[in-house]
Design a binder for these strands. Structure first.
Length: 214
DNA sequence: CTCCCGATAT
DNA sequence: ATATCAGGAG
């Protein structure tokens, strides 16, 4: 691990000490539903949606018996609601019937669930089982990794491989959480606030921003 | 690659 | 008006 990367890790650790999931949930099953809903949607909106969803259908068994229209209505505001409702329903059936209500504990099993890709599976593994088989690469992690030039790749899968090669496995879970917080707070997609960013001296993109003539 | 899809900031 | 939000499937 080179010195720039260890500085980045250290600063992120100091500025974002807590690495908790922002999604609200009571049970592992509810986390699975919340993470599926969080695709292309802010966690804040998911958290405004899930309380009523989980009040109506709190367990995999009850969600598996829910009318799809009811799920669609309850999650409508998170977007992609037809896909997400179908995925949550199918997931609930599989979790109830095949896994007897337990959430699978390997990446391989998780990505077989409908609506669960590597990003979602890595969130679930890290959050429920504290396991890192991979690294959560969402839109924030992808964007910040590129800006910090930790990768030259453009697809989530390649970026994940690059990061796995660079970072010690013990840092994988916390790294994603911290990068996501930083992406929300400062290194915003549309208008990064490089002038007040504590990673300025480690960030090639901040240097470029600074030398723009505008 | 396209499609799914509502809410919000700019 | 348009880009973007803790993406995944066909």
């Amino acid at each position: 691990m080179n010195s720039s990367i260890s500085k980045i890790l250290k600063k992120l650790q100091v500025h974002y000490p807590q690495t908790q999931c922002f999604l609200k949930y009571q049970t592992p099953f509810q986390l699975v539903c919340a993470v599926i809903l969080s695709a292309q949607c802010t966690d804040e909106r998911v958290n405004r949606t899930t309380p009523l969803l989980f009040k109506n259908f709190p367990t995999p068994e009850k969600m598996a018996r829910a009318p799809i229209k009811a799920i669609e209505t309850l999650i409508h505001s998170t977007g992609f609601y037809r896909h997400k409702a179908k995925n949550i329903l199918e997931c609930s059936k599989i979790i109830h019937h095949t896994y007897h209500g337990q959430i699978p504990s390997t990446l391989e099993e998780l990505v077989r669930l409908p609506g669960v890709g590597r990003k979602t599976a890595n969130v679930i593994l890290g959050e429920i089982y504290k396991k890192s088989e991979g690294i959560v690469v969402d839109t924030h992690v992808a964007r910040l990794s590129q800006r910090l030039q930790l990768t030259q790749s453009s697809t989530a899968e390649k970026i994940e491989q690059d990061l796995m090669g660079i970072l010690p496995q013990s840092e994988w879970i916390a790294f994603s959480h911290r990068l996501i917080q930083h992406g929300r707070n400062l290194c915003i997609a549309r208008k990064p606030r490089c002038n007040i960013c504590f990673l300025q001296s480690q960030c090639p993109s901040a240097f470029l921003e600074k030398n723009k003539s505008n």
